[in-house]
């Protein structure tokens, strides 16, 4: 089973929840850090790294001998990665989405492909080998998160419980991270900001047709907008994590949820079973 941990808003506690879930269960688990612009689950899981691999994408390379400067490739490119000024095109590889269209429209077959690295995958394990940790990291200056996320996901095996730590927001990197997951936990906080972005996230997972529930972090602060919204929308609240000073202290030292709030452990332990039993709407 693959459980994705997502949110609309950043900073609500996705990594806190994803790490807690990975550490709570006693079975083998794979923690996949798909928040490739700022992967930080490893700070808390402290995996032993066994290997790294590069994430390569293909970008066009122009054969200026064969090119007739017709500009068809540049006109085709929706990402402005190719520019033709009546000359062989200039290539901006960092803008290329590797769609391959320019090579298809080129009448003289002048475009070949060159591999460039846009990120790195780290493979490791934590908690004496019980937790496999796969982390994707996008290179600074690269803007294409989805290929890095796809490569993280290529390491997921079907027979192991997998926790996917998603990036914030509702755009392409989130969709790519959610794709293939069986269930989504949406982490939010009880504030107007949390509610606003939770609604966006709920709209997203509903369009994707994925079963989901909500985790409210820093529960006893803020207002009751999120709870009322969930009640009206008949959305199950899977967990309410209390707001404690001790949690902030533990977090600041790279500790995990149960170091500060041990009474949450039983609930997190039972989340995979609850999901399997189909608790979606109360």
């Amino acid at each position: 089973m693959r459980i994705a941990v997502a949110s609309g808003k950043g900073g609500t506690g996705k990594t806190t929840v994803a790490v807690a879930l990975s550490m709570a269960v006693s079975e083998k688990v794979l923690y996949a850090d798909c928040d490739v612009e700022e992967p930080n689950g490893s700070i808390f899981l402290r995996p032993e790294i066994s290997r790294t691999e590069k994430v390569l994408v293909e970008v066009p390379e122009i054969d200026e001998e064969k090119c007739i400067s017709c500009g068809k490739c540049a006109k085709f490119c929706q990402f402005n990665a190719l520019v033709s000024l009546g000359t062989p095109p200039l290539v901006f590889p960092e803008l290329c989405h590797s769609c391959g269209g320019c090579a298809i429209v080129c009448p003289t077959d002048s475009i070949s492909w060159k591999k460039v690295s846009i990120g790195e995958i780290t493979v490791g394990s934590a908690d004496s080998g019980r937790v496999s940790v796969i982390q994707g990291k996008l290179n600074v200056g690269s803007s294409l998160a989805p290929p890095v996320i796809r490569q993280v996901k290529s390491h997921i095996a079907d027979d192991i419980l997998t926790v996917i730590d998603c990036p914030p927001g509702t755009a392409c990197p989130v969709i790519e991270s959610l794709d293939g997951a069986d269930y989504v936990l949406l982490v939010t906080e009880p504030t107007p900001f949390g509610l606003h972005d939770l609604i966006l996230a709920v709209d997203t997972v509903r369009v994707l047709g994925m079963p989901f529930s909500v985790v409210i972090n820093r529960f006893d602060e803020g207002d009751d907008g999120v709870e009322n919204y969930c009640k009206n929308e008949k959305i199950h609240i899977m967990a309410k994590i209390p707001h404690r000073r001790s949690m902030a202290e533990v977090y600041s030292r790279g500790g995990i949820l149960f170091d500060a709030i041990p009474e949450m452990l039983d609930l997190f332990k039972s989340i995979p079973q609850m999901i399997e039993r189909g608790i979606e709407v109360e």
Binding site: F79, N80, A81, V83, F92, L95, S143
Partner: peptide
């Protein structure tokens, strides 16, 4: 434009 505005 999502990207490449200066180029265009």
């Amino acid at each position: 434009a999502a990207q490449g505005a200066g180029i265009q």
